[in-house]
């Protein structure tokens, strides 16, 4: 009993030392080779603890060897990109320019549920918000969101045209006039007109107060 206790303490200290030797990388998300080493070390460490028939030195040797191999391999990874690709693989793009790459998804055996779960993990609930999504070598998904459209700005307030606001959105006065024409005869008849960078307008004519939306990809609607 005392021997088992002593062995446990020695191997506990050894495994702590092994994890420290592998470094901070080991404590975060695991690369394939690191995962293999972690599983092997945890299995091998239990054998000499349980079985007093196995000399402690025999139990310690494979743990230290595996950890040292891992450290050397990860150092070589830095210098040899080919080896890194061979050992850890390479990141795969699963959404490119907003388009889901179904073939890569199948190749990675990534289901739609897996994809949506990974996106939700990044606080994204709408797949259309994603510009790029990459499955990293650790299996985690990195996401680049689509740039948000410029917030709408008031280009006509109480019949007065704001050239500064239109310029900041890159809209010409001609566009604003043509939008105004669609619902009112002139700018003076408009109470509020807002516009955004995509070229859609929201118009509230004087008098009626009815909100009209024009332009963008949508059909004009009221």
């Amino acid at each position: 009993m005392r021997i088992i206790m002593l062995r446990s303490i020695i191997l506990y200290a050894l495994v702590i030392f092994a994890v420290r030797l592998m470094g901070k990388r080991q404590l975060g998300e695991l690369q394939p080779s690191e995962l293999v080493i972690t599983i092997l070390v945890s299995n091998i460490a239990t054998l000499p603890v349980e079985d007093t028939n196995i000399p402690l030195l025999v139990g310690v040797t494979p743990i230290l060897s595996l950890v040292c191999f891992e450290v050397i391999l990860s150092s070589l990874d830095l210098k040899l990109p080919g080896l890194r690709k061979l050992v850890s693989g390479s990141p795969k793009i699963i959404i490119r320019h907003g388009q889901v790459d179904v073939r890569t998804l199948k190749e990675l055996r990534f289901s739609v549920d897996d994809l949506m779960m990974a996106l939700r993990g990044q606080d994204i609930f709408d797949i259309s918000e994603v510009e790029f999504a990459v499955v990293e070598t650790t299996g985690s998904v990195s996401v680049l969101k689509k740039p948000e459209a410029d917030p709408p700005q008031v280009v006509v307030a109480d019949g007065v045209y704001s050239a500064a606001a239109a310029d900041s959105l890159g809209i010409s006065e001609k566009d604003i006039l043509s939008a105004a024409k669609k619902c009112s005869s002139s700018l003076k008849d408009i109470f509020i007109m807002t516009a955004d960078g995509s070229g859609s307008f929201c118009i509230v004519p004087k008098g009626s107060g009815k909100i009209m939306i024009l332009g963008g990809s949508e059909d004009d609607k009221t």
Partner: peptide, 17 residues
């Protein structure tokens, strides 16, 4: 330092075996 330690440990284990 970790790399040097690892190489050292491996060499010791190799010699020992």
């Amino acid at each position: 330092t970790r790399l040097k330690m690892s190489i050292g440990i491996l060499l010791i284990l190799l010699c020992l075996s």
